[in-house]
Amino acid sequence: MPTATDPPSKKGAERKSRILDAALTIIGRDGLAALSMRTLATEAGLPLGAVGYYFANKKQLIGEAFDAHSQRELQRVVQTISSIGDAGSGTDLAERLTDFVVEGLQNDANSLVAEYEFLVEASRRPEVARASTAWLQALQAQLANVLRRLGSSEPTTDARLIMAAIAGLEVDNLTSDALTRMQTTAIRESLMRLVEALSLAWARNPPERRREKHS
């Protein structure tokens, strides 16, 4: 008789994926506190025992749900990093960052809400904190590479600043309603202003001048 530790069959893998989809739906719609084995079984349309077969407890479920979220967001992140990597100017960079923020806020699956639920949970669970930190650091490192090419003398610090601004804009605009044109414009103008200010700083203190000061 198969056990939960055996490699899953194709049908088993599909059922587990279905359960994780349901878990992410609950987290994004109702919050992490609303997630339980019983609510998950109801959402997935499965017997309670089927959920318990794949997940021994809520702790394991949260960990695997976060992993699933990270994997499913990976493609969007990779595409954004690739797009940012092609940015030829500060204005172009700001536009692409705006697209990234707006796309995340308009996701019908509430994946951004789920992401922030996981970030809150990371303050309580070291294993979730490690996973979320690694994911954010990967994006920050790629952004820093772009900023270095655009002339930043402090690319790591500037990348951290931009990511903090993005997080603030996401939180300010998290809502179940569709983004208005005014909100989208405000997001774009905020990121434009930030990148313009950084560009001025880069012009005043280019990497060559910084190296001369420390030589």
Rank of each mutant, 00 (worst) to 15 (best):
V195S: 04
T156R: 06
V195M: 04
R188Y: 15
L150Q: 00
S152F: 05
L174D: 06
L169G: 06
L191T: 01
A197S: 05
M182R: 15
I187G: 04
Q183P: 07
S199H: 08
L200G: 13
L194I: 12
E154S: 05
L200R: 13
S152K: 00
S190L: 08
T184K: 14
S190Y: 09
R148G: 06
S153V: 10
S176Q: 12
N173I: 13
R193N: 15
L147H: 00
V195D: 02
I166Q: 15
T156P: 00
R149Q: 03
A186K: 03
D177W: 14
M163Y: 08
A164Q: 07
A197H: 06
Q183L: 00
R160D: 11
R188F: 07
G151H: 01
A167C: 09
A186E: 10
L194N: 05
S153W: 07
L161C: 05
V195P: 07
R181Q: 11
M163L: 13
L194G: 09
L200C: 09
S176E: 12
M163E: 14
I162D: 01
E189M: 10
A159L: 04
D158F: 04
L198N: 03
E170H: 13
P155Q: 03
S190E: 06
E189N: 12
L191W: 02
D158S: 02
L161V: 09
S176Y: 10
T157D: 13
Q183I: 00
R181L: 13
S153N: 05
M182D: 10
L200P: 00
I187S: 04
L179H: 03
A186D: 05
S199I: 01
R181G: 13
L150C: 00
S190V: 10
G151I: 02
T180G: 02
V195L: 02
M192F: 11
L161R: 01
V195G: 11
T156E: 14
L179E: 02
A178W: 15
S176G: 12
S199M: 05
I166R: 08
A159F: 05
L191S: 07
S153E: 04
T180M: 01
E154D: 11
R160F: 13
R193S: 09
S190W: 06
E170K: 11
A167D: 14
T180Q: 02
A165F: 09
S153T: 06
T156D: 09
A167S: 06
R149G: 08
I162C: 05
A167M: 10
L179A: 02
L169Y: 03
D172W: 08
E196M: 05
R148T: 14
E196I: 04
S176R: 13
R181W: 06
T184V: 07
L200V: 05
D172T: 14
S176V: 15
E189V: 12
L150E: 00
D158V: 02
